[in-house]
Nucleic acid binder design. Structure first.
Lengths: 236, 236
DNA sequence: GTCTATAACCGGATAGAC
DNA sequence: GTCTATCCGGTTATAGAC
């Protein structure tokens, strides 16, 4: 999944120079406008050498992505430690995330372009992304666990996934948001956190139990099918 | 948006030969595996000539896409003419659409990859896609109008957009669905049509009016902001 | 074995002659 | 409208250097 780590000290330094050069160029002139020859030049290596460390240009971008993810996780930890209340936690997590990724709005479009390809290992539903997907889901399990909101048992099992999907939706929205300061996305988060919280509370209402059970059943079916698709021989 | 139509009869024929060659090759060996040289060869023209008619390889694919859209519209008309009842109409529309696009699942990934790029004119939220987006929304306005379901006034104005978004979501799911016969997507449609219908009916419940109004207000805000983003000088 | 460099290849795209 | 020749940039083959 990751590139094989360099074995020697010098190798690690070269690798870092390449990443550094790439990020500077991507940032200053954009991903598509930066050629691998540019990157290699700036890093003071030959093209072939750059390819020794990164099998493709895209993987160079991915280095950034990983870094970003780590920073999001750090920024969010604080919210999870202090906030109680589901709504505040959800909103806080999303807003923090937004703060961290905002400076990279420009790349994100490129990242997303490749993530959208179902054949790409970078797409969030791929086998290769399993670890990151599970981290994402775990984050929302935490958002829920740390709050005092009551969630009906059948829904509780599926809600983290659902919230993770919602997170993906917010990011998708953000990518397309061209308003200054990403005003629309902020508005979306501000308002939708409250709505989601209400919906969750509503789902606990006994009057709505039949509807809820139906929805949960659908989710379970899709999840089960997904597992079957990933593992074509469930008996083995 | 579209390539300039050929001016002469011969031009039109050449153009057709190119499209034809491209589609055959895309279908038999896939988009990425087909080179423009292949296409030109099979069409019996020079590469440069192919580019005279299609400014890019991607636009060749887009020819397919348009065709597909027209066929979806045709396939769906029948459902709209016969079915009453919101749920049946919604389910019918989605299932018909699925039937039409199923043979092209393979390309769709490629189409989607480019559609996902916010900078691409092909992405469904771009200005260039406005016409198609509005057609899509109009379709769901029709789905609603032809049924006897009562929708509260404030929601009625936004529901078609919402259903169109749901449609996008289903297609996104379909693209990632690798089960035989697209079983998962069919299950999703089968079950979610009923759920959506129930939710709409639920939204009419006076007890839920505050929640509904809040949701609608959010939607309106986002839509208004969207207009502002598209037209940066609302006063002019 | 780890790393680096040079010289290609390949395919999308374009220039410009006819 | 059509062609040939060429560019350009991602990627790879491969020969060596440490």
């Amino acid at each position: 999944m990751t590139e094989p780590a360099p074995k020697t000290r010098k190798g690690a330094e070269t690798r870092d120079r390449i990443v550094q050069a790439a990020l500077e160029l991507f940032e200053s002139r954009g991903y598509d406008e930066t050629t691998m020859r540019d990157v290699a030049d700036r890093a003071g290596v030959a093209v072939g050498n750059a390819y020794y460390y990164f099998r493709s240009k895209e993987l160079l971008l991915q280095a950034y992505y990983r870094e970003l993810n780590a920073r999001v996780a750090a920024a969010v930890a604080d919210v999870l430690a202090t906030e109680r209340g589901f709504e505040a936690r959800l909103r806080g997590v999303l807003l923090r995330k937004l703060d961290v990724i905002e400076p990279y709005h420009r790349f994100s479009a490129v990242l997303f372009r490749t993530a959208a390809d179902p054949a790409s290992p970078q797409n969030p539903f791929s086998d290769e992304s399993r670890a990151m997907r599970e981290d994402g889901i775990a984050l929302y399990r935490d958002v829920l666990a740390g709050s005092r909101t009551k969630v009906p048992g059948d829904l509780a099992a599926r809600l983290p996934e659902l919230l993770w999907t919602f997170d993906l939706g917010v990011v998708l929205f953000w990518i397309h948001d061209r308003t200054p300061g990403r005003r629309r996305t902020r508005a979306l988060i501000e308002h939708s956190a409250g709505l989601v919280a209400r919906l969750v509370r509503l789902a606990a209402n006994p009057l709505l139990a039949p509807l809820r059970r139906r929805a949960v059943r659908l989710l379970e079916e899709l999840a089960a099918d997904g597992a079957a698709a990933a593992d074509p021989s469930p008996g083995a």
